[in-house]
Design a protein around this nucleic acid. Sequence first.
DNA 1: AATCGTACGTACCGATCGGTAACATTGTCA
DNA 2: TGACAATGTTACCGATCGGTACGTACGATT
Lengths: 203, 203
Amino acid sequence: MPAKRPPSHPAEPAAEEKPKAAERIRRTARELFYREGIRAIGVEEIVTRAGVTKPSLYRSYASKDELAAEYLRDYEVAFWKVFEAGAETHPSDARAQLMAYFEGLSQRASQAGYRGCGLTNAVVEYPGDDHPARKVAEEHKRKLRTRLVELSTAMGAKNPALLADGLLLLLEGTYASGQMFGSHGPAESLVNIANQLIDASLS
Amino acid sequence: MPAKRPPSHPAEPAAEEKPKAAERIRRTARELFYREGIRAIGVEEIVTRAGVTKPSLYRSYASKDELAAEYLRDYEVAFWKVFEAGAETHPSDARAQLMAYFEGLSQRASQAGYRGCGLTNAVVEYPGDDHPARKVAEEHKRKLRTRLVELSTAMGAKNPALLADGLLLLLEGTYASGQMFGSHGPAESLVNIANQLIDASLS
DNA sequence: AATCGTACGTACCGATCGGTAACATTGTCA
DNA sequence: TGACAATGTTACCGATCGGTACGTACGATT
């Protein structure tokens, strides 16, 4: 285990040099998988657009399936960053935190070309429960549900688990319908609907 | 245009004889496309499971894409049949009609192996707006939204379009989350949540 | 200078993809 | 019975799929 690489930092972006092949593949795969779907994109197109070759891909990732799982892990990190962004601007106000995310989502999902949630899309693309990408997605959704229960509790809901389920249904509904309707779809009503539901769940 | 076929009835199921190849392909494709996804299923597997061969498929359907579109047209017919089933048992009661569908959906979406809405899944599988299957799905969703506005109006909602959007978000959310969570997922709360939303939208 | 580990590219694998040409079989009419 | 159209079958196409064996350029170590 030769763990001695003085100039390069293993877990850091290392913005000093040009991106390595593995990182270029990662970024290209993330963009293509999200925009076009995992099944729709072949490894050939990924490496071509990344400016590398196939062996470089398979040296860093065991298979296309594993690369897809890695893409979703990156996607999840980015998701939580956006989802929890409201915690800083609205500390100790669970409802405002949540609604900050809902407002941003509503706007994004109301634009043409919106592609929904990469994790949800992966579940649709891979119905069988043995795919590594699907496992990442399923675990994430369980975590999201748990987090929504926490927020619902903090909001003072009578039945936090029930409100959390309602909010999750609205979220997933927005991801899906944002892809089907272009502008002026149901996603535009998300904030209004969510507020109605939260109000009804309090007293 | 030789439109003369006395003994055979073009648009009827013709339950008298054994199913033709085109019909077997249609049924097999419908089941496989729904369960596994359109991109995941090749034409080879369809014709094998249907007990026919590829040329039989391509004589009745112009391409795999067209077969997929035909599958969704069949799916849509079946959807409306289930969706409007409550109109007979609950005439002149829009809310009861709608909730009858919601209750059935909630149960189906809470079972392991649930695969959501075939039309929504097709939109996720084909992001580009040029695919024939996607066009069928998009048009259906617009019709569904219109129908929900009608029902919301009949229910006496203050803002029918807004309630319709909320109901549509809940529907799509149930389709999606039913696939990710097995039993005891958010889909189980659909009826309760929908009732809260409808109540809040009336007075 | 000889050596070694790392990183990357060239060229190729068998399998499967959607789709088709050409031929055999069948049923329905005159 | 014979002609015709519809529907079936065998065998194949080029393209692309995910994945890999093998050779090479290069910088650090001895």
